[in-house]
Amino acid sequence: MFINAVGQVASEVAAIKSINSQVFEKSSQNIDLYFRDLLVNEKYLWSAFLCILSAKALREVNKTTVKLGCIMHLLSITMHLHKKLPQTILTTDIKKKLQYPILIGDLMYCKIFSELSRFEMQQYIPAVSSLICTIHERLAGQESQEEEIEALICEKACYFGAHSVIGSTDTTEKISELGYHLGALRTLWESEEGYSAKVNSRWQSTWKLLDFLPGLKEKSLFQDILLKMGEQWTQKEQLC
């Protein structure tokens, strides 16, 4: 529902969904159906959306941005697939429920690697592998809540989006920080079901960060998203 608040990136988001829908085109019907539900879930599109938004706020979106958006989308779905598993496997039915997510998740990692294999994308492999490593280290060590995991994914998504159009600059670093906050904010918003003091506090800090973000051609793209989130519990005037 937040993604729809920014109509300017609708075509890119649609392109990402369409490209990624072909990932399992030739797979069995069961896998295809399983995957399709995840593909259209806005929760897993959030990182891809922020990637596109970051590029668009700075310059025109290019092919690399869309490819990176696709990768972030697949990565978000994979993280969901590889989340908590039952510790004891008692029956064949339970076993089946966890087998597909594990193997499909692994397949996605390979597809991500395959997409990154191309010449112009190779430069992003270290950052993606480092992100995967960090997330799995934290999940295994039970050091991080979902909020932080999403924040890390979105931090990288915004970095990639900005990097694809302006390369590595101070703005790229700043926009990735904004991504971290937006990832955490969305997860908090969902887990707290809208308003809470915690959400409000995160919202305020994100807004302030955006205010001081240099070099954004279209700052309003991010503002629209924040306002959409904020309008659920308070007046726009107060928030701004």
């Binding site: 590889h82 908590k84 966890l98 993606v128 995967i132 490593c133 799995h136 280290e137």
Partner: peptide
């Protein structure tokens, strides 16, 4: 170590392999 831990370790090793190959 359990299912969760194994899953994370496997994914971690795969990602480490990627960084070497890259």
């Amino acid at each position: 170590c359990g299912n969760d831990f194994s899953l994370h370790l496997g994914a971690y090793l795969f990602a480490r392999a990627l960084s070497v190959i890259a």
